Simulated assay, not measured.
Amino acid sequence: MLQSPVEFFRNMPEKICPECGECIEDQAESYLLECDRCLSKRYE
């Protein structure tokens, strides 16, 4: 049986930053793998 799209996205695990382990607050159009804090450190 197929799962509804709403249930699929509701059951997805949280995205975790591989650098610091912090949970990333995703935007719908975002494909970032690191949190904003780690990204800003990289480009200082």
Rank of each mutant, 00 (worst) to 15 (best):
R42E: 12
L32V: 12
F9L: 14
S40L: 06
C38G: 02
E44C: 04
R37T: 10
D36R: 02
C35M: 02
E7K: 12
P5N: 02
Q27D: 12
Y31M: 02
C38P: 00
L33G: 07
P18A: 09
C23L: 12
R42S: 12
L33T: 11
L39G: 01
K15C: 04
G21D: 00
M1I: 14
Q3R: 13
K41C: 05
S30M: 03
R42N: 09
R10N: 13
P13K: 06
C23F: 09
L2N: 14
C38A: 05
C23Y: 10
E44P: 00
E22K: 08
E29H: 09
L39C: 03
Q27R: 11
C17G: 05
E44N: 05
L2V: 15
C35W: 01
C20I: 04
P18E: 08
C23D: 07
E25V: 08
M1W: 14
E7L: 13
V6R: 11
E22F: 01
M1L: 15
K41N: 07
E14L: 13
E29D: 13
E25F: 04
V6E: 13
D26M: 14
E29G: 07
M1D: 15
M12F: 14
S4Q: 11
R42K: 14
K41S: 07
F8M: 08
S40V: 00
A28F: 10
C23W: 04
C35A: 01
M12I: 15
D26S: 11
N11I: 03
L33S: 08
Y31S: 04
L32P: 02
R37E: 09
P13F: 05
Y31H: 01
M1C: 15
E7I: 11
I24P: 02
M12H: 11
P18T: 06
Y31P: 01
E19P: 01
I16D: 01
E34D: 06
Q3V: 15
L33Y: 06
E22R: 00
M12Y: 10
L32F: 11
R37Y: 08
K41H: 09
E25M: 00
G21N: 03
C35V: 00
A28P: 02
C23M: 11
C20Y: 03
R37I: 10
D36A: 09
C17I: 02
Q3P: 02
R10E: 14
C35Q: 01
P18F: 10
V6T: 13
R10M: 13
L32D: 10
E22M: 06
E19R: 01
E22P: 03
M12P: 00
E14Y: 11
D36M: 01
L2A: 15
F9D: 12
G21T: 00
C23H: 09
E7F: 09
P18V: 06
G21S: 04
E29R: 06
Y43I: 06
Y43N: 07
N11R: 12
E25I: 11
E29C: 06
C17H: 01
M1Q: 14
D26G: 06
S40H: 02
Y31E: 04
L32W: 07
E25N: 07
L2W: 15
P18Y: 10
S4C: 15
V6H: 10
P13Y: 07
L2K: 15
I24H: 01
Q3F: 14
K15E: 03
E34R: 08
